[in-house]
Design a protein around this nucleic acid. Sequence first.
DNA 1: AATAATTAATTAATATTTTTATTAATTATT
DNA 2: AATAATTAATAAAAATATTAATTAATTATT
Lengths: 416, 416
Amino acid sequence: MSVLFTAQMAKHYSLLQELQNENLAGVAYKNRKLIRSILTHFANSGNATIPYLSKLLNTSVPKTGELIAELIEAGLVKDYGKTGSSVGRRPNIYGLASDSAFFVGVEVKNNYINIGLLDFKKNLVKLSERLPYTLSNTQQSLDELCEIVKTFIEGLKDIAEKVLGIGISLSGRINYKTGYSYSFFYFNEEPLSSVIERKIGIPTYLDNDSRAMAYGEFCSGVVHDEKDVLFINIDYGIAMGVMINGELYYGKSGFAGEFGHIPFFQNEILCHCGKKGCLETETSGKALIDQFRQKLREGASSLLNSKYKNIDDIKLDDIIDAANNDDTLAIELIAKVGEKLGKAIAALINLYNPELIILGGRLAGAGDYIYYPVKSAINKYSLSLVNNDTQLKISRLGAKAGVIGACLMVRNKLLG
Amino acid sequence: MSVLFTAQMAKHYSLLQELQNENLAGVAYKNRKLIRSILTHFANSGNATIPYLSKLLNTSVPKTGELIAELIEAGLVKDYGKTGSSVGRRPNIYGLASDSAFFVGVEVKNNYINIGLLDFKKNLVKLSERLPYTLSNTQQSLDELCEIVKTFIEGLKDIAEKVLGIGISLSGRINYKTGYSYSFFYFNEEPLSSVIERKIGIPTYLDNDSRAMAYGEFCSGVVHDEKDVLFINIDYGIAMGVMINGELYYGKSGFAGEFGHIPFFQNEILCHCGKKGCLETETSGKALIDQFRQKLREGASSLLNSKYKNIDDIKLDDIIDAANNDDTLAIELIAKVGEKLGKAIAALINLYNPELIILGGRLAGAGDYIYYPVKSAINKYSLSLVNNDTQLKISRLGAKAGVIGACLMVRNKLLG
DNA sequence: AATAATTAATTAATATTTTTATTAATTATT
DNA sequence: AATAATTAATAAAAATATTAATTAATTATT
């Protein structure tokens, strides 16, 4: 493979490495900062011209030109030719070279893994969905996970060399900054991210599943210019990713967004977290399944009556499919869940005064059947002056949000 | 007065004005940015030496020295002599000149006004408390407010010239960025901040009362290095100031932190906001008064039985005083309010994973009688892994938080 | 079709900043 | 008490970035 390692690639890696170097000072430091800013601008906002960057960074045109030349020399940036017309000489436009670097995103679910490959310009160039895997809190399960990722990367052939990092999205409580996972694979003194990094040999970052999805949606989903955004992941459980001032919010230790376990009901339903009355106990995929099965046992009729002999075999996706096929029971129960959830979201609106709230996760697949009950409860329960500001939208990336978010997370770590 | 306006003062004002100038480019822009950074550092972290600043700003020592000389020339910065010993030649230490500029903070309450004067170095040099005033939503009330502030500033004599700005803390919904107040004095097309600014002739900024208090606590109260902090203002109503990543969080339009109106109870008590079940309806100063009076009517005994003939004359401060004098009824009812509030705060902890939560506002004057019930409810209702991170403290500035916060708000606007 | 007007890119001149060297001030060590 | 070691401040030299001037490329106008 080292035959493929060209002189340009060597330059490109040395420049990227230099960007991570913390020990620079003086002129070298300032140049690195400018180069980072240029790359970040390309990464987040796309191609740009030298005069534009010059104004943006408050640097002279000759200096900006010099930095761009350096980036082109290193193979990270490409000259994309002249831009569309206006008055005067047309500027050249520059941007990232899409095939100069790649990022791998891994979404670990309970019964399968999704892995995606993102190029330097945020294009999802490969996606392996539903690779068989069973998540359990054992060393063996962890080893298996690493093997699957390794195999995926080896299968990329010459691109494998250009993979700059791996982002892993995992459920449970994760401290993104330290790399520790507390809910899964907490066997060692060493942070989980380091353990995996050592096994695979590529820089690895961990994050919580809902936050990864949120990040995908923030960077290449439904979010445009909004800076204060909440992403609600309505799956088996309920969680939230928070974007504040254009950046993911983590809190002290990366546990922010535990929306599903706020004490919201006065009920006696025991949550898997050990407390009673958690939001999740009445408004989540799990709650919906329980409620649906209960209704069937009580003799209610549904499309799913005929599909399964055993009521306990009914899955969340079945209920969502049923609703999308006009099943009255599914629609009614989803609406009830939506109303309660909307009331809790109304509280979030009062607290965060967000510009946008995104409904994501599997239950968001129910589209209007979840959207309208949530929307109407928001109007009912939040202060009108405050909720006037807040748009409500359904996730655009859908099931791909997790993988794309995990890729973007690493990309941002290195470029942002 | 213009006799007092010296040549140095002219320089000083021109430099401060230049700092606000948005139309600088090139070298001038960069110098301004550096000067701003130096001033901000002095303002937030205190005095510093040239070698230290040089490292901090990644600027060479000669350049840093030049900028400091300019600031001294303008009278904004002072040379405070040599620092305490270490090895080698001891550096000179520089910092803000405390008497070079002042800030006025105005806290508007329902029945009085507090006005404070802060010097350049954050010392509260004058405080006029409980100036008689009645807040009502009329033009006359607004005029009266302006007159009181004007009188205060004129009374400062030669210092009046050096007042750089006025910060006003007002209850209700306020958009800090635009200067609009929606709950009070919303008579004109023009933002309220501009209206007042025109009347008094000094740059004026508005903010919400709870946020101003929170800001006081964040900058010169109980907060040290914490970056993610919640300040709960427990007064007649309940509201919150949020600090995220070391900065006040406003949300899309400055309405973030409406903690008191989240739908938290299933009760039928109508809140003044028009909704039912708001947090405030059962856990706030108003709720406490209502509950206390109700108990007395039901025949309960209390120290306050003898003090007032008419139960309706009992005020919030009386109940807090009673508790602090071991009145059982007051203590019990405050504890109940505290428990419910603690449950709601547990939700905040799950959502924000904050490093610190501050209990402020009048009810925080009940000290341990409110602290422990809140603390115990937090332990009961939030996820232990998350709440382990969160300290709970009582406000340090107490009744002065609002005035100090209002002063600091303007100071930060100009220096931060 | 030629010219003016406009903006981009490059080059040369100027200004600014940094780096290095030197001097100054101070503490610890011999 | 003298000297070495250390850090700060200043001065001089070198490096670097900016500004201004020039050339290039393009569109609108005469």
